[in-house]
Amino acid sequence: MSYFSDIINGTKTLLTGMRVTGGYFFVNFFTKRDVITQQYPNNIETLEMFDRFKGEVIMLHNENNEHRCDACTLCEKACPNGSIEILGDKAKDPETGKNKRFLVKHIYHLQMCTMCGLCIEACPVNAIDWGQDFHHVEYDRSLLTKVLNKPGSKIMSGIKG
């Protein structure tokens, strides 16, 4: 007897569940009310990430192609996995006549970065920040090594070196 009542109960509860799924099927078919799926990559033009989204580390440049980095290497030291290498050099400052450090290359290995944010926190002059781009697919991982300071860029005036 319990064999048959089991079958009946099983069917009944199955139908209760199917009412839920069926409800979604019809409601979403007509209204798309509960649809949260984003049609990536079709929406690639309109897709906006949250402003805090951690896509990659970038260096901020102003419109004159100037950045704030003075090659102090604090970010390099803060990084837990050696994703940052700072190549700096020294040159005579024409104003003061003293030797001053300047940045040659801020090398960033995106392939090793764990997005921990310690470099950004460590930077005393806020020269680097999060970028929201996440399209990082490459055929070779060495292509993910980037130079963050743009070619020809130089340090903003007023930043102590």
């Binding site: 509960d34 949260i36 949250f50 805090r52 989204f53 951690k54 764990t114 997005m115 921990c116 944010g117």
Partner: peptide, 22 residues
Amino acid sequence: FRERELINDIFEETCGTRLTMN
């Protein structure tokens, strides 16, 4: 996953990442 997505949006907006919030 539908419910999780909404919670992950909160994380993404406040913490910057969805899974490894840090």
